[in-house]
């Protein structure tokens, strides 16, 4: 288990398990993404370069984007991939619940920087057609996992 320090919100995650799970489907999912000129999770909006106090809010919104718009809408006949994605989604759900607790304890404030970064991520996502956006976002899970890894 890895401890993430997001300002004064501290949670533990199974980051290694998520990375191992994603590495099994990464090449397949990334190969589906043919729009390689565009990136949703860009460096300028990265989690680790966000003010610590706002990291919890940014991560919470990004996880909600993945849970509400990405995992749900990805379709494939490949059951192995679906199982891996389901496991990743469950891990994201667990993290989101922990962040919710921080929110309830007022340790997950949403300030301008975090909201501005999230709106950029959302606009990068919405600039693409729905199917393209879902595939690209899934292919960028390694970026999101590394963002979480580097929030120390």
């Amino acid at each position: 288990l890895k401890t993430l320090h997001l300002g004064s919100c501290v949670i533990t995650t199974n980051l290694q398990e998520m990375r191992n799970g994603f590495s099994e489907i990464r090449d397949h999912v990334q190969a589906e993404d043919e729009i390689i000129d565009v990136r949703i999770l860009r460096k300028m909006v990265s989690l680790q370069d966000t003010e610590p106090a706002g990291q919890c809010c940014l991560l919470r919104h990004v996880l909600r984007l993945y849970l509400d718009k990405v995992f749900k809408n990805y379709q494939t006949p490949d059951h192995h991939i679906l199982r891996k994605l389901s496991s990743l989604a469950n891990s994201f759900l667990t993290i989101k619940k922990d962040l919710r607790l921080c929110h309830d304890r007022m340790t997950c404030p949403c300030w301008e920087e975090a909201m501005e970064k999230y709106s950029r991520i959302l606009s990068h996502f919405e600039e693409l057609k729905p199917r393209e956006a879902v595939v690209k976002a899934l292919g960028e899970l390694d970026i999101l996992l590394r963002w979480m890894e580097e929030t120390e």
Binding site: S23, R26, D27, Q30, A31, D33, I36, G139, D142, R146
Partner: peptide, 8 residues
């Protein structure tokens, strides 16, 4: 190539 990450 596939997408390449040297870390990975």
């Amino acid at each position: 190539t596939d997408r390449f990450s040297s870390l990975q």
